[in-house]
Design a binder for these strands. Structure first.
Lengths: 342, 342
DNA sequence: TTGAAAGCGCTAACAT
DNA sequence: ATGTTAGCGCTTTCAA
């Protein structure tokens, strides 16, 4: 069997309580006995059993992170930032891939609840569990931080990117270099895309540019690399059309990449035939050709902020129940995928 | 407080044992009482406490996955495949980023041990803990599967790619199209790179090609995207040299990318000035320009095989202690980054 | 400053 | 088929 706190206590000739106290440093222990205990711990190579601690204290020093897909580098940059900040505090992370499926999301949250994680971070994801109150119910039992989800009527802490700001800069830029016939390419799932669509419509109205509904296209699987389905969908419903947009704003960089590939397939050149501005600033955008202009979502700050917020909430749950809503600035990064029409 | 098995038992007018039995289905329970229990569970929205189960059974339905860096898509493709296979069996995964640091590796393994995970998968990583016996010691306490690590004197289960095969095909191809002055670009950490170096030397000897030691270059941070440090190191020690190789075999695709960028910086064109064959077949290689030739490491099969192996071992630990060593085939994929010298 | 002991929520051996 | 109960390994209150 494994070595337990009893073994340590026996070897050090103290009670288990004293061992616990010297480990946790939460009650006074005499220097000399502390030394004996520490030596026993070392001699026996004792490692405390987290399951027992969890049972006794309700704390597991672990959190759950839900992402819609491992294939999208954007989610993983956020995850990386989260990992980098929590491990310093001794926390460890369950990574859960929900595949953008609301039911999987519920499954994992219930699972994590059963596992007594100290908190949960939900990175984007589908709307359903926002709207049906599931997240709010979960938040009654556990600390949850939502990244870029619906924040209205939400009882969870919330960190989001300023979606309008970067997008406005990007669209302003497109217009400033002469584009009028602008398309919007978004995904089917999630709050972010809905926000972008709303803003796009609002923006075009503000600029008095008549909106061509056909210029707004939805891809089914927004978190996938370019593939036959997405490409053919794009080819059919947009790039072949007579009134093809001269520029596209694209809701995430994986889809920018798909659009880039689709253009190549059609023999269209980016940016001279078609300009592209993406979203997220995943690493790839800097190394493809042309380098993609994009809106940087500050993934590192996003992940770090969320993790710090969660840790704060966990360690200070003295019943001060104020909800945090943090907004991160975004930044339009202009690289090589936009050409002037003038 | 949370609802416990006692609450369920009380409501269903049975003992906790009966509740436990109907949940786990490991002992007979009468249909009618089973129904009562199930109803009580539903009515109370009862979720069993994993910490308590873990304490009582030593099983947590969780595994730990160690990777050297979240930034390398190759590791995440493996991770994704692992997740996809374990979640179907009700398992969940701690993701641990060791940053290629042996001490972090030990920290996480000890941590996971304390948490009573049912098994651990180590994806690549540094050599130190192979050589100093740390992994072997860990394997006495828990099931561990190593991916692409040192397999000599190893008491852990082991899944690896056939490193020589794909590389031989690649090098054969380079020679077949006229290259003789071939360089090798590898990373500093890990068994895979050492294997590649050994094989490279052996191969050149077989082909009677004199080996220029300067053609073997090591990058410090092999799991990073192209950055100033790596680029300048490359520029200095290779591409500027008079006797610059006409082709490179590169130990991973992140470094292929770095090499590609470095070439661009020097105004060299790939493949006409310099041919590149990478390793791993990360998604990027298919969408950059030129599309990179590479050796496919079958990440999906690799991850899935490892996960299935681990689950098997976990669920059948009837003391049959035979160590599994599985080798996965690799495949040279020729795309656009090699040019003939003839 | 230290020890004794109850309790965290579950499982499984034993008894019926 | 079901109930009783002794743990699993730790924390923490109460007493000393």
């Amino acid at each position: 069997m494994n070595v337990t706190i009893d073994d340590v206590a026996k070897l050090a000739r103290v009670s288990t309580a004293t061992v616990s106290r010297t480990i946790n440093g939460n009650y006074p222990v005499h220097e000399s006995t502390k030394k004996r205990v520490l030596k026993a711990i070392k001699d026996l190579d004792y490692h405390p059993n987290y399951s027992a601690i969890a049972l006794a204290t309700k704390s597991t020093k672990s959190i759950g992170v839900l992402i819609p897909g491992i294939a999208n580098p954007y989610f993983l940059k956020v995850t990386e930032a989260i990992e980098n900040t929590i491990y310093k505090s001794g926390y460890i992370m369950f990574l859960c891939d929900t595949k953008n499926d609301p039911e999987m999301e519920r499954y994992y949250i219930n699972n994590l609840l059963s596992r007594n994680v100290d908190g949960i971070i939900v990175v984007e994801g589908p709307d359903e569990n926002h709207l049906n109150g599931f997240f709010n119910k979960a938040a009654e039992k556990i600390n949850v931080v939502i990244i870029n989800g619906i924040s209205e009527n939400l009882n969870c802490h919330h960190v989001s990117c300023d979606q309008e700001q970067g997008m406005r800069d990007a669209l302003d830029y497109l217009i400033s270099i002469g584009h009028v016939n602008i398309g919007l390419l978004i995904g089917n799932n999630g709050h972010s895309f809905r926000l972008k669509k709303q803003f796009f419509i609002k923006f075009m109205k503000q600029k008095n540019i008549p909106l061509n509904k056909e210029n707004i296209i939805c891809l089914q699987n927004e978190n996938e690399l370019p593939n036959a389905d997405n490409l053919s969908h794009l080819l059919e419903c947009v790039l072949n059309s007579k009134n093809r947009p001269t520029a596209f704003y694209v809701g995430n960089d994986l889809m920018s990449l798909t659009l880039l590939e689709a253009s190549k397939l059609l023999g269209l050149s980016v940016p001279s035939d078609i300009s592209i501005i993406g979203n997220d600033n995943i690493a790839f955008t800097e190394f493809c050709s042309p380098k993609l202009s994009t809106v940087d979502y500050k993934t590192e700050i996003l992940g770090e902020t969320s993790a710090k917020l969660l840790l704060n909430v966990i360690e200070n749950k003295k019943g001060d129940d104020k909800l945090e809503k943090i907004v991160i600035k975004t930044e339009f990064i202009n690289r090589e995928s936009c050409a002037s029409l003038k």
